[in-house]
Design a protein around this nucleic acid. Sequence first.
DNA 1: TGGGTGAGTTCTACGGCGAAACTCAGGGAT
DNA 2: ATCCCTGAGTTTCGCCGTAGAACTCACCCA
Lengths: 399, 399
Amino acid sequence: MTVGPSAAAPTLPPRPGGAWTPLTGAAHRIAVAVLLDGPLPRSELARRFDLSPGSLTRLSRPLLDSGLLVETTGAYDPTSGRPTRPLDVDESSHHFIGVKLTATTAHAVLTTLRARVVAAEEALLLDTSPAGVAATVADLVRSLASEVAEVGVDGVRAVGVSLGGRVGERGEVRSARYLGWSDVPLGELLEDLLGLPVVVDNDMLSLTRAEQWFGAARRCDHFAVLTIGEGVGYGLVVHDEVVDPPDAGVGLLGHFPLDPTGPLCPQGHAGCADSLLTISAVTARASTGLRRPVRYEEVLDLALEGDPVARRVVDDAARGLGRLVAAVGNLTMPQKVVLSGDGIRLAEVGRAALLAQVAADRNPLASPLDIDVQQTGFREWARGAAVTAIRTFVLGTRA
Amino acid sequence: MTVGPSAAAPTLPPRPGGAWTPLTGAAHRIAVAVLLDGPLPRSELARRFDLSPGSLTRLSRPLLDSGLLVETTGAYDPTSGRPTRPLDVDESSHHFIGVKLTATTAHAVLTTLRARVVAAEEALLLDTSPAGVAATVADLVRSLASEVAEVGVDGVRAVGVSLGGRVGERGEVRSARYLGWSDVPLGELLEDLLGLPVVVDNDMLSLTRAEQWFGAARRCDHFAVLTIGEGVGYGLVVHDEVVDPPDAGVGLLGHFPLDPTGPLCPQGHAGCADSLLTISAVTARASTGLRRPVRYEEVLDLALEGDPVARRVVDDAARGLGRLVAAVGNLTMPQKVVLSGDGIRLAEVGRAALLAQVAADRNPLASPLDIDVQQTGFREWARGAAVTAIRTFVLGTRA
DNA sequence: TGGGTGAGTTCTACGGCGAAACTCAGGGAT
DNA sequence: ATCCCTGAGTTTCGCCGTAGAACTCACCCA
């Protein structure tokens, strides 16, 4: 007599994790809410989704049985009445790897289900051909997965890769200026090498979604992200959804006019965003004024020490950034603007100029703009890629 | 023996119209889709909402029985197979009145359920006190309703009123600069006078929603509206929903910087939107240059005839508008930008300058911007108010 | 005139939901 | 100490909206 799987399955103890994608509507919304907003009691979830207490019992039981959610004894209790038994996720039950590609380097992080960075690694991209990059990324992924003893490769559920450029639905890189690629099926290449789900997405959209789920813009349904670095990046979330038309995420804001007396860009624009705000624009302008080559951080330090050339360059750029922030505020009316990117210390060193320009460009009657400066580096870009992987794992779709 | 209502009701013939608000989820979505997108066969609706054919039969029957929808024999037939029996609304079954208030005048229109204007009327606001305005509006509403013999007052289901200013959820005008009002319960005042549902809303948001449902932006889920008139208006729809934070609709874009060499505004800004684009700004600048007072339309006509002063004024303004359009395009990435307002002929007379500036301010790699110039007047503003009334009637909520 | 095609109907089974009555675990007043 | 109050979570039951399958319908074309 054979014993079918139905006889064994019910006796299995709850395993950590559990499958997210086959979940139906309400159960899925509940699981995502718990993932995003930490331990939540059933009663709070019932209020949030306008469900009856009975429905919450029914919906949460299979989630607990499968190990997808766990009960905690949290400090979430009401002032009177029975204490709550909040639901939470075990964020260590699943791990993800995010890789950010630049022209020269691959930055990778290993994160938990809640995008907490557990380990980081990077590798130079000596060979920027699709196969070369794929091999380097695959090595990074394997190294990260094995490096962390307590996790193991099995704990990694998906890999996210982000880069500057346009990326199609199926992980194919349609164009990537920094790598000189067009129509490269990077996702497929990596999936074949790794045997893991791989999601490829635009870096700016990934970072924006990371801020939305696990970053500075949690619980905001309407915000913008501006980044300063090699280029000027822009991401927008409205009605709790990323704005993602064909033009999103690929640096088309670089020609936004900020200062008609500013430096020229290759297209003949004066004082456009790329000519004023990027790391290379700031260092070039400072180097010209100082009659010697200087690095970006050096320019910022000199400005802090009171060097007049550096101060002027930094303040001009900060004013331009302020103008851009004000324009974003005026035209998209967000709850907050997140400033980020490798060069964003500019916003701190030039804070006064930035805020003055924002105030000057906005209607005095407008509500004040919440500007949130995030100190970020390549690790945050890689974390954004990991969040793309997490979203795919949790939602079943990339968006 | 008494006869209950259940004995008589089923024998009544279908009456035109029917109640929209008690409809449940799927039935309501179907009814709205038919209202917005004209006659639609059940099969198309089933595809659109991912419902089975059986569900569509079940859902559409009560809508037909109540007279809310009607069957048409339309030219919507497939190349083979049984012809369709598309569902449609009888747009004449319900009528609505929209009133746009300015500082001096109330413009009113009577429309069908599909916002087709049936009659129009206007009245001077000699007394701009809340009671005086309410009395004038009530007279307009009664006159419009009775003027159209075949409709009758009973055919009017709701009244929409729009004005420049902030309006609360319950139709209370929180502030209206042109009328010098603050915290006026205009909706209540009018409902008491008329005995009809009255919805009050910001004029710019009303116009934007009108473009979305019955205007140039039908079937767009992401567009912006810019208006030129006494002020500069701005409305934004993203993910098929109007962006409506506290700052929306009240002319806060007026200080958006467009041309640092432009004329000054009272706040000391040079070349901000209000100082460059409004009707009064254009006429003032032209009058100064021409050494005589000129009207707005005259300036535009002179520019067409080649007058150098008028041409310069118009082109400067059109360039400013182009810069604004480009900024909207760059920062919100819409499918189209609708240009409207009483002064929008500026965009036609200065078309070349406008388009040149849009091109200059946008990244050459960005997708081209769909700019849709709508010739509009006060009638369109009033129609926007009527659409607010229609939306309330159909959706049960103002938004 | 009969088969092919897609529109629309009928009937049945199922699953998700709310309502109500219930149990549970604390706090505070007597 | 104990009793009630409060709010959390459970159980049970019945309703309602849905899909699915088998069906009819109306038109085209060979």
